[in-house]
Amino acid sequence: MASTDFKDYYAILGVNKTASADDIKKAYRRLARKYHPDMNPGDKAAEARFKEVNEAYEVLSDQDKRQKYDRFGQYWKQAESAGAAASGGRSPFTSVDFDNFEFGQYGSFEEFINELLGRMGTGSTGFGGRTGPQTGYRTSRRTTGFDGFSTGFDTGTGTGLDTEATITLSLSEAFHGVQKRLVLGREEFEVRIPPGAKPGSRIRVKGKGQHSPYYTSQRGDLYLTVEVTPHPFFQFDGDNLLCEVPISPEEAVLGAQVEVPTADGPVTMNVPAGIRSGQSLRLRGKGWRTPKGDRTDQIVRIVITPPKDLSPVEREYYEKLRSIRSFDPRSSLKGIRL
């Protein structure tokens, strides 16, 4: 990665380098909602900004990744793989003082490695006096070529040829399934994400990992870990979908039929008379897709919402109701003492 490709993740999230994990999470949530594709339909600039925000949060929300990023700058991923693959499990970076390194001066990771090896000496230990990465020392590659989500590729995992990536989907893409065109280095290929992928799901793409340095026909697999961006209405409640639906005070008292959005479109739901705010109703078979092709339930949490602006007639009737009301909602509180 050239130094000009370096992304300042702190600047992307609008926080400083001393920001707490809580500050980073708050900044991410604010920006993710602001630039979410559902909130900016057809806006390519917002979509690109949304990808950047997710990429920045992926690194800065992970304590280990954040420490490496702070220390090695644009080469943090390469340094991470190099340390893990060094002989005997000992990182080649542990004996080097990085305080005087200016990472931005290097045009590529290879230039950085050559300078590093020069500082370490060229004896018979470590890399044996050669001037570049050797067998068993694999660099990580990071790409943002995935259309529609941020990715991070870590080589040297599993068999040493398998590749890990994070794929960020909208809730709609995760629910319905989606075909994605991936760009990995010079290779372009299609990946089908099946319907019903949930956060943390892992999808294996056979034969799309790293090539073996010894056998040209051998190649690892690509493993995609799914992340799902927040939705303004739906969220996960275990295996079910959860939403909140507002109703008016009179609908709560008298009962009502209200229209509720679902993944399949709006449905009419019966709200029983006397329901309380916070109580939940269940729409069976309207939740998330399961691997077997079934559907879980949609949980509807009721929120009684009083009107903010009343017409003169509405105010008159509410005042009449108050004057003739026989029900005392706080009768159970009488006599309570410590």
Rank of each mutant, 00 (worst) to 15 (best):
F109Y: 15
E80N: 14
D62V: 06
Y35N: 09
F127P: 01
G107K: 13
N114W: 02
D97L: 07
D97N: 13
W76V: 06
D70M: 10
A84K: 15
L116H: 11
F112P: 04
G42W: 04
V59N: 03
Y106G: 02
H36V: 06
G88I: 10
F127E: 04
Y69P: 09
G126L: 03
G42H: 05
K26C: 01
G73V: 02
G121A: 05
G118P: 08
R66I: 08
R119Q: 12
A56Q: 02
R90C: 03
I113Q: 09
P92V: 15
P37H: 00
A85E: 00
K51L: 15
V53R: 03
L31M: 08
F93T: 07
F103D: 00
K77V: 09
F101V: 15
K65I: 05
F112Y: 12
P41T: 14
G89R: 08
D64I: 14
R49D: 03
K34T: 12
G107E: 08
A45S: 13
S95M: 12
A84L: 11
S91N: 05
R33K: 14
D99K: 13
A32K: 13
K77Q: 10
Q105V: 15
N40M: 03
I113F: 12
Q105M: 08
D43I: 07
N114H: 08
G104C: 00
Q105E: 10
D64H: 13
R29T: 09
S87Y: 03
R119M: 12
L31K: 14
F72E: 01
G89T: 07
S91H: 02
S81V: 13
Y28D: 02
T122H: 08
N100M: 05
F112G: 09
I113T: 14
F127V: 14
K44I: 12
W76C: 06
Y28H: 10
M39D: 01
A56T: 08
R30L: 14
D97F: 08
F98K: 03
L31I: 05
D99G: 03
Y75C: 02
G121C: 07
Y28M: 06
E52Y: 05
R90P: 00
D38A: 08
R66M: 12
L60V: 11
A84C: 04
Y106M: 05
G118C: 06
E55S: 11
G83F: 00
R66A: 13
R33N: 07
R119H: 11
K44N: 05
H36G: 02
L31Y: 02
R30N: 12
E111Y: 12
L116A: 11
N54G: 05
R29P: 00
V59T: 14
G121Q: 09
Y28A: 04
K65Q: 08
D99Y: 00
D62W: 04
Q78H: 13
G123R: 12
V96W: 04
Q78S: 13
E110Y: 10
G118F: 10
G128N: 02
F109P: 00
P92L: 15
A45W: 05
L117K: 11
G128P: 01
A84M: 10
Y106W: 12
G73R: 02
G104L: 11
R90G: 00
D62A: 07
R49N: 10
D70Y: 06
N54M: 06
S95N: 13
M39P: 04
W76F: 14
E102W: 04
